[in-house]
């Protein structure tokens, strides 16, 4: 069974009366469980939109998307929230950390909405921060961390609810090559531990070096597919 499967996926943004942007123009995508797929393409080609729809952040205009065998269209608002909390983990280009909270609370944020108690949240966050090499930064606020460290915190957060699918949208877009390599290493080790990965990147080298398969997008379609 494929971990991610989309059929004729369409997403349109209606900007005005006659102005409709087709961000996804019929995407058929299959990612096997445990597969690491890199998604390349020019800016505006629909990569982020695809990730958002697959991750349940956004609903498609038409077509189907199933993750782990669950058809997302069948999920209620509540179940979709649960799906975001447990089944997928997101890593964003601009980290999206909460500046007022220390690293561990940022990592543990998804657990707040899963009803996990504070002590357990801190324990799990500490373990993950240790995994990404930030054990000594557990109580630091984002502003006290470098960009690479911030993205490692965000990466730890995406793993805190032990999701099967990891969605990373240009996670190294704001980082230099040295720290980019650290993030690539983290993605690879997550892959080694069995996670399914969908990585959007501009970094062809990183895509070809780390991923099992590279897919290119243009104008809301996957290139090569007809």
């Amino acid at each position: 069974m494929s971990a991610i499967r989309t059929r004729d996926l369409v997403k349109e943004y209606r900007l005005g009366r006659d102005n409709v942007v087709r961000a996804l123009a019929g995407v058929d995508l299959e990612v096997e469980a445990g597969e690491f797929v890199a998604l390349l393409g020019k800016s505006g080609s629909g990569k982020s939109t695809l990730l958002n729809v697959v991750g349940g952040l956004d609903r498609p205009t038409a077509g189907q998307v199933a993750v782990g065998g669950t058809e997302l269209a069948d999920l209620s608002e509540r179940d979709l929230a649960a799906f975001r909390a447990r089944t997928v983990g997101f890593v964003f280009q601009s980290f999206h950390l909460q500046p007022r909270y220390p690293a561990w609370e940022n990592v543990a944020l998804p657990l707040v909405f899963l009803g996990v108690g504070r002590r357990e949240r801190r324990r799990r966050a500490a373990a993950l921060l240790d995994d990404v090499g930030l054990a000594h930064r557990i109580d630091h606020r984002p502003a006290e961390l470098s960009g690479g460290e911030q993205q490692r915190v965000a990466f730890a957060r995406s793993l805190v609810s032990e999701p099967r699918v990891l969605l990373a949208d240009e996670p190294t877009g704001n980082l230099d090559s040295e720290t980019s390599r650290q993030i690539a290493g983290l993605l690879e080790s997550a892959h080694e531990r069995g996670a399914t990965l969908l990585l959007v990147t501009h970094d062809r080298e990183m895509a070809e070096g780390s991923a099992d398969r590279v897919i290119r997008m243009a104008d809301g379609r996957i290139e090569g597919a007809s």
Binding site: R78, R84, H96, L109, F113, S161
Partner: peptide, 16 residues
Amino acid sequence: THEIGLWKAVGATSGQ
């Protein structure tokens, strides 16, 4: 708004 968006992205329900 940004913070609320993040909450929802990581799994908060509208009710929460």
